[in-house]
Design a protein around this nucleic acid. Structure first.
Lengths: 344, 344
DNA sequence: GTGAAAGCGCTAACAA
DNA sequence: TTGTTAGCGCTTTCAC
């Protein structure tokens, strides 16, 4: 008999463990550990033999065993409502940037804009993450109930809620800038509002802020001057603008929930024979790179989305450092900034 | 000595364990486990008491301990070269879709287009993932050396390589469609090529395929008719087109590495006083949604990027099921398809 | 330079 | 219904 059988092949379904490597190399588990992790205290020849054994078995250390032992690995879960929404890549890049700096991992999930899915997705993420970041439409109490003990940082969260971390966007200031631009710089007086879906938390806040500012200028505002976009997309914006234009054919300006809706509005206006911005001024919100590419390019209230992501991770760090910390009265705030382009 | 230490409070920095909960509730760890995991075999009153104890301690089960014990959790790492590249969201959505179906987690990383970072990022991901998916510019041997034993599925990988899983895109067919459209449908005869960065694996393949087809039509092709985009972005496309236009002022068509470069080309052409498509036809590659929004809208060779992502996860599943499986001669292929719009 | 033993936090199997 | 035991795969003592 030969000793060929010492060359145990990796059986499909069962991964080699440190014990397998130790046995094959004829050393203790400890020695294998030293070789794999490149510690000192090991002979060069031994190390080589161990590494060779590991290679031949296709050995990889179990991340669970290592994580359990070392307790130094942090993973944060990022829940998006729709990965393909161009709003998110910059947020994600901010999250990834800070996570990388800290040596943290990031797991992502997509709720596909569905409330039920959202909770499920959060729960799935929570199984793999120490804390969560997300733009959630579920009420705070529901989150607290369904995800007990899980630190959550909410993006774009209206103020006044407790029990979770959050990062705020100053929509009031943003919408004031948008409305002021249309009214003061462009002299528009009949301004419509294209609101987001009723579900979205920040939708109402954006609309209310816009309406308030319109009224402060002595201009009409309210349901008559508002249309809901069914989705926060170009198509949603097209449909919403068509609806609004029917009710208000004399409209000379539109404030939009976000850039995609604004681009849809511009397209629909052109289709209806209106010139932008000669007849109607359009202004978006978010400041997507996309806005520079359409014709005319889109004026928008720019949000530093990468900063939003970075701040969110920092909030997670705060929560993780002291889970018993009280909810902070003033969450970090991102301040929007008007960027004027061709559509107004 | 007192026994006060039995009442271990949740010290910031130390998370409560199942033992802490058991102790506080006055039951065994096993009973706590039953309560937490909603198994039967536990009295209602006991369960309530345990859950209350868990709540008050802010207890969450350790994912490492659970993962170690249950051995049923799969995580795949997705490495992107730049999260903010609009090519990726659809790929990611495909990956997430299949991952969700299988109950797998997805961790993401961003190499920021840097080769050094790429390897580091892959290694970081590998610490948390059972397998990796990525569009990698590192040579295969380097991947195998730096990530021993890690199953990797490469996106957009040229054929003929071994040792990793891969998903292919049929660039030859795609570029043939692009060139044929310009030549046969639009009658263009002086066609430039805007290539991607030299680093990018698929860049050369796309260019070669385009040049080959151009020559098959008896048209000139080669270095004289090619410009490199420094980055796969709109700005990169603008610069590259400017360069190409200087060398070939009589150019009447451009085939581009991707849609962003194509959009940059269109902008630069307009700036140079050329009409698109009257004077010059432009065609992109990838079929980003973005292409519909620019004016004129962009003709492009559409790739089903979500499918690419889905196939990649399926390849991962194959690799994971049998790590010893031989490299498959014919990797799954995504077939590009021409979508004609206004720019040609 | 190397090995033996203990234990990280959890759950399956079995015992009571 | 509840508790005890064992062990998942790894690394950190502490011996040798």
């Amino acid at each position: 008999m030969t000793v060929q059988h010492l060359e145990r092949k990796p059986v499909p379904g069962r991964r080699a463990t440190i014990g397998d490597v130790a046995e094959l190399a004829g050393v203790s588990k400890q020695t294998v550990s030293r070789a794999i992790n490149d510690k000192g205290e090991i002979g060069a020849a031994t190390k080589e033999r161990v590494l060779e054994a590991a290679r031949s078995l296709g050995y990889r250390p179990s991340r669970f065993a290592r994580g359990l032992r070392l307790q130094d690995s942090v993973t944060v879960g990022l829940l998006l409502s729709d990965v393909t929404n161009p709003y998110y890549p910059e947020v994600a890049s901010g999250v990834l940037e800070v996570a990388e700096d800290r040596g943290w991992h990031v797991v992502v999930g997509d709720s596909r804009g569905d409330r039920r899915r959202e909770l499920e997705a959060l729960q799935v993420l929570a199984r793999q993450a120490d804390a969560l970041i997300g733009q959630c439409s579920s009420p705070d109490e529901e989150l607290a109930r369904e995800l007990p003990g899980v630190p959550i940082v909410l993006l774009d969260h209206p103020p006044g809620h407790r029990g979770h971390g959050s990062v705020r966007i100053d929509f009031t200031s943003g919408m004031r800038q948008a409305v002021d631009h249309l009214v003061l710089d462009r002299g528009r007086r009949r301004i419509g509002v294209l609101e987001g879906t009723p579900r979205a938390n920040p939708a109402t806040e954006r609309r209310l802020s816009a309406e308030q500012r319109l009224r402060e200028h002595g201009l009409p505002a309210g349901a008559d001057w508002t249309a809901h976009a069914v989705s926060h997309t170009v198509a949603g914006g097209e449909a919403a603008l068509a609806e609004l234009l029917t009710a208000r054919p004399d409209m000379d300006g539109v404030v939009c929930y976000n850039d995609q809706i604004a681009i849809g509005a511009m397209r629909e206006l052109k289709r209806a024979g209106r010139r932008v911005p000669a007849d109607v001024s359009v202004i978006g919100f978010d400041g997507l790179p996309l806005g520079e590419l359409v014709t005319p390019s889109l004026t928008s209230v720019h949000i530093d989305k990468a900063r939003l992501g970075r701040l969110a991770v920092q909030e997670v760090a705060r929560l993780l450092a002291d889970p018993t910390a009280p909810p902070v009265p003033d969450a970090p705030v991102v301040h929007p900034e008007l960027v004027v382009r061709g559509s107004t």
